[in-house]
Amino acid sequence: MASRRRQQPVVAVLRSDDAPEPDGRWPSSIPAVAQVLREGLRLDPGVTFLVGENGSGKSTLVEGVAVAYGLSPEGGSRQARHSTRATESPLSEWLRLQRGVGADRWGFFLRAETMHSFYTYLEQNPSTRGPDVSFHEMSHGESFLAVLESRFDSPGFSCLDEPEAALSFTSTLALMAVLRRIADDGGQVLCATHSPVLAALPGARILEIGEWGIRPAEWAELEIVAHWRSFLDAPGRYLRHLLDP
Rank of each mutant, 00 (worst) to 15 (best):
R181Q: 14
T128R: 14
T170K: 10
I224S: 11
A183M: 04
P235W: 01
G186A: 04
R42Y: 01
D184C: 08
E164A: 02
G102D: 12
E123R: 11
V33G: 09
G76K: 04
T128K: 12
A68F: 00
R81E: 12
A2M: 11
H116A: 13
G213W: 10
S77W: 12
C159N: 05
G64T: 00
N125R: 04
A112D: 08
T87Q: 12
T193I: 04
F231R: 03
Q98W: 02
G236A: 05
P27K: 02
V10R: 05
E123A: 10
F152K: 00
H140F: 10
P31E: 06
S150L: 10
T87A: 13
R25P: 01
A217G: 03
G156E: 03
A68M: 05
K58S: 12
L95V: 03
E218P: 00
F108M: 02
T48R: 05
R237W: 06
V36F: 05
S92F: 15
L175H: 02
L207T: 05
R237N: 09
D233S: 13
Q35R: 08
H241N: 09
D161R: 00
T128W: 11
L91H: 03
S56K: 08
L207H: 06
A199R: 07
E93Q: 15
E211C: 03
V47Q: 03
A200K: 07
P126W: 08
Y69E: 03
Q35L: 03
P31N: 05
G46Y: 04
E74M: 14
Q7T: 14
S150N: 14
V197L: 15
D244R: 12
T60W: 01
E223V: 14
R151P: 00
A86Q: 10
L41I: 00
H136T: 10
S56C: 11
I30N: 01
L71M: 15
G55F: 08
R205P: 00
R5T: 11
W212Y: 11
R181M: 03
R205S: 13
A86Y: 10
A19S: 06
L95E: 03
A66W: 05
G70W: 05
S16M: 00
D18Q: 11
S29Y: 11
A166M: 04
T60P: 06
R6D: 10
L242T: 08
I30H: 08
A66P: 11
E39D: 15
M115W: 09
G236W: 04
A19C: 07
L167I: 04
T193K: 02
V197E: 14
M138K: 09
R99E: 07
A200W: 07
E162G: 02
R6A: 15
G46E: 04
D23I: 01
H116K: 10
P90S: 03
A226F: 07
K58Y: 01
Y69C: 06
E218D: 14
S230N: 12
R215M: 10
P22T: 02
E39V: 00
H82C: 01
R151Y: 10
S77F: 01
D184T: 14
A80S: 15
V10Q: 01
A32V: 01
V62I: 09
H241R: 14
K58M: 08
E88R: 13
R4W: 09
G130M: 06
